[in-house]
Amino acid sequence: MIEVVCNDRLGKKVRVKCNGDDTVGDLKKLIAAQTGTNWEKIVLKKWYNVFKDHITLDDYEIHDGMNIELYYN
């Protein structure tokens, strides 16, 4: 289990517990469940990298305690 912090810098910061082999899409769903937004509206970024839904967090080398930028479509 890893814990990822997602911050949209507009007032929402979510700490999500997830597995390393979860996909980005799963992560988005978890975030959506916690924040109450539609998961399809969520965009996750690290700098200019937009994470794609079908790729796992391990593949993106997202480790425990990392910060991910949270944007909305």
């Binding site: 289990m1 929402k12 910061k13 979510v14 700490r15 999500v16 517990k17 997830c18 916690q34 924040t35």
Partner: peptide
């Protein structure tokens, strides 16, 4: 921070 416990998750 919004966070959920392991059980909630």
């Amino acid at each position: 921070e919004i966070s959920a416990s392991i059980e909630e998750t």
